[in-house]
């Protein structure tokens, strides 16, 4: 028996969520009195996971598996599960991982519990707390199968250091010859910028910004904060911003540490997708905007005046705290 942690990486480096799932896996392994093993793909420093309680890393070195392919990765993970006799599989909530998760659940005939926000409530049967109804509720969910897949919500459980002796083993899954079915033609991706999925801070603009020409406000604020940029649905429907920035119930989910909503009214569908962010700051001219009811901090004021001023204050703050 063991807990298997599926880690994500990019250009040979672990993503932040790899440490989150490792922390979760270690915590669960302790409760089950077993070990947490991780699988990694072409990572340069796999032993880093030892800081988060992982005692064995299966590191794949295969140039054919450098880029994510849902079928190939699901196959590799299921071979690792078989080799290590793993009963609990810990995965993140990124777009790629969620793509792979369903395939993995189908292959293993396993119960999959996504959007988990806390340590298990019970281990026999494994019982988890997860968000449902787009953050409008929580469910207590048990896994009914022998093998269970746990999808950990980003930023919910946290990263916990636990220095552990780690062995790194090379792992060579047998993918060759299997028809991957889907092949990548091209990737069109902003590089060097925080993404909505990974960022600690997300700065989001709504229709209150009046037009795409004013988006430098959002971008400048995001830049001082090292934040990702996002927008409300009408903003992407109007073509002011790309669809990939649309957040909310029907867009990307946000669960950052700080979500800053500027010129966004706070419609129920918008809130549903961003409410799991830890701290919400709202800037809006209308004191009755519904978003203020869901916010932790608020400024009633005109974004065109407040945001430039806030940028200045943040720059001063950064200069002092550098």
């Amino acid at each position: 028996m063991s807990v298997l942690v599926y880690t994500e990486s990019e250009n040979g480096k672990f993503k932040k969520n790899a440490f989150e799932v490792a922390s979760y896996g270690f915590m669960l392994a302790q409760e089950l009195k077993t070990v947490a093993i991780a699988i990694a793909f072409n990572v340069e420093n796999p032993e880093e996971l030892g800081n988060f309680g992982i005692s064995k890393v299966l590191n794949i070195k295969d140039a054919n598996l450098t880029n994510f392919n849902a079928n190939a990765y699901a196959e590799a993970v299921s071979q690792a599960i078989a080799q290590e006799n793993s009963k609990n599989i810990i995965i993140s909530s990124s777009t790629d991982t969620k793509y792979m998760a369903g395939i993995l659940a189908g292959k293993l005939n396993a119960g999959y519990c996504p959007n988990v926000v806390a340590a298990p409530l019970n281990t026999e049967p494994l019982t988890l707390k997860r968000t449902v109804f787009s953050n409008k509720g929580f469910a207590t969910t048990s896994i009914d199968t022998d093998i269970g897949i746990i999808g950990v919500s980003s930023n919910a459980f946290g990263i916990n250091e636990n220095k552990t002796q780690t062995e790194v083993l090379e792992f060579n899954p047998n993918i060759e010859g299997s028809d991957l079915g889907v092949s990548s033609v091209s990737i069109d991706k902003v590089t060097g910028k925080a993404t909505i999925a990974d960022a600690d801070i997300v700065v989001s603009g709504g229709r209150g910004l009046k037009g795409p020409e004013n988006w430098s406000l959002i971008e400048d604020l995001a830049e001082v904060l090292g934040a990702a940029t996002a927008c409300s649905k009408p903003v992407s429907d109007l073509g002011w911003r790309p669809h990939s920035e649309h957040v909310g119930q029907t867009g990307k989910p946000v669960s950052s540490n700080l979500y800053i909503a500027i010129g966004i009214s706070g419609a129920i569908q918008h809130l549903a997708g961003v409410n799991s962010s830890k701290v919400k700051l709202v800037i809006n001219t209308d004191p009755d905007a519904p978003f203020f009811k869901a916010a932790d901090y608020g400024v009633v004021g005109d974004a065109f005046e407040v945001v430039p001023e806030l940028i200045e204050k943040l720059k001063e703050f950064k200069a002092q705290n550098a």
Binding site: Y112, V132, F138, T140, T141, A294
Partner: peptide
């Protein structure tokens, strides 16, 4: 694969701090 045993609603939010 799994069963939902119980549900709850999020705790009510405290008032916003206005600046």
């Amino acid at each position: 694969g799994s069963s939902d045993l119980a549900f709850e609603k999020p705790a009510p939010k405290g008032a916003v701090k206005l600046v």
